[in-house]
C-alpha cells in the first residue's frame, strides 16, 4: 500500500474516532427523545472554550480540563432540557428543531459577544509532535484524543447497558408510557439524558481543543457532521455512531487527499443525502425510522 493512501486512511480513522465521540451524544438525544438537536455544535464549542480558558489562565493541560468541561456541560444540558426543551416534548417534531435552532443562535451569538469572533488555538508542548512509524506520521494529540474518544463512546454504551439510570433511559426510549407506569420520572430522565449527551459532547470538544481552531462560530459545521455520522450509523443506535464516524472520517480524508477540501464537504452532503434515500436505517440497518 502506498504511503499517501495509508496516511490518508490513518488521518481518516483518527478524525472519525472524534466524530464518533461527539456524534454519540447527538444520537443518544435523538434516540431517547426524538429531538434533533440543532445546537449540538454549540456544546462542542462550549467544551472547547472551557479548555481554552483553563489553559489560558491556569495553564491547565486540555486533557486534564476535560472532566471540568464534562461537568459544566452536563449541568448546562440538564438545565436546558429541564426548563426549555421538556416543554415541547410531545408536540410536533418541528417545535424541537426550531427551539434548538433558537438555542444555537443565542448561544453562538452570546459567545461572540463575550469572546469575539477571533480564531483561537491552544499551543501545548506536544502540539505538532508526531510519532513516525514506517514512514507514516501520527500526531500524538490526535492519537490520544482518538483513544479518549473511543473510551468515551464505550463508556456511554456501558453506562446505558449496565447502570440503573441507563436502564431507565433505555426503557424511556422504547416506550415512555410504559416507563412512566413503571415509576420512571420521565422529565427527569429526559433532563439526565440531555445532560449526558451534552457532557460527552463537551468532553469531545475539550479533547479536540489541542488541534482544532476554536471560535464561537465553529458549532454549525460540527452539528452538520454529527447529522451525517448519525445517519450513516443509524439514528438512535449508539454503536452506529462509531461506525458512521469512522466511515465518514476516512471518506472525507480520502476526498481531501486526492481531490480537495471543498469537494470533501460536497461528498459529505452527497453521502448524507444518498444514505437517507437508500438506507435510512444506516449502514448497519439498526437505526430507528420515524
Amino acid at each position: 500500500m502506498d504511503t499517501v493512501l495509508a496516511q490518508a486512511i490513518i488521518n481518516g480513522l483518527l478524525l472519525g474516532g472524534v466524530y464518533a465521540a461527539y456524534s454519540a451524544g447527538f444520537s443518544l438525544i435523538f434516540g431517547v427523545m426524538g429531538v434533533v438537536n440543532l445546537a449540538h455544535g454549540e456544546l462542542i464549542m462550549l467544551g472547547a472554550f472551557t479548555s481554552y480558558w483553563l489553559f489560558a489562565y491556569f495553564n491547565l493541560d486540555p486533557y486534564l480540563s476535560a472532566p471540568v468541561a464534562m461537568g459544566l456541560l452536563f449541568l448546562f444540558g440538564y438545565v436546558v432540557q429541564k426548563y426549555i426543551i421538556n416543554r415541547v416534548i410531545g408536540q410536533p417534531h418541528i417545535m424541537s428543531y426550531i427551539l434548538t435552532f433558537g438555542l444555537h443562535l443565542m448561544v453562538a451569538n452570546i459567545a461572540i459577544k463575550m469572546w469575539t469572533q477571533d480564531f483561537r488555538s491552544i499551543t501545548t508542548s506536544y502540539s505538532g509532535a508526531n510519532a513516525a512509524i514506517w514512514g507514516l506520521n501520527i500526531p500524538y494529540a490526535r492519537l490520544v484524543t482518538f483513544i479518549v474518544a473511543l473510551f468515551v463512546t464505550w463508556g456511554l454504551w456501558f453506562f446505558l447497558m449496565r447502570t440503573e439510570t441507563g436502564r431507565a433511559i433505555r426503557a424511556t426510549a422504547q416506550d415512555k408510557e410504559v416507563a412512566r407506569l413503571m415509576g420512571v420520572d420521565i422529565r427527569n430522565i429526559y433532563a439526565i439524558t440531555f445532560g449526558l449527551g451534552a457532557a460527552i459532547t463537551g468532553l469531545s470538544g475539550s479533547v479536540m481543543s489541542p488541534f482544532v481552531i476554536i471560535s464561537p462560530e465553529m458549532g454549525l459545521e460540527y452539528t452538520i457532521i454529527a447529522f451525517c455520522v448519525v445517519v450513516l450509523g443509524g439514528m438512535g443506535y449508539m454503536p452506529g455512531a462509531l461506525v458512521g464516524g469512522l466511515v465518514l472520517g476516512v471518506a472525507q480524508s480520502l476526498a481531501a487527499t486526492y481531490l480537495n477540501a471543498g469537494v470533501s464537504v460536497a461528498i459529505t452532503f452527497i453521502i448524507l443525502f444518498v444514505m437517507l434515500i437508500i438506507r435510512p436505517r444506516g449502514l448497519l440497518g439498526k437505526g430507528s425510522v420515524a
Binding site: G34, Y97, F227, F269, L272
Partner: peptide, 15 residues
C-alpha cells in the same frame, strides 16, 4: 418522514 425528510432536504441544499 419526519426528521429524515428534514435532514435529506438540508443535505441536498448544502450539497
Amino acid at each position: 418522514r419526519g426528521a429524515y425528510f428534514a435532514i435529506a432536504t438540508f443535505a441536498f441544499a448544502e450539497a
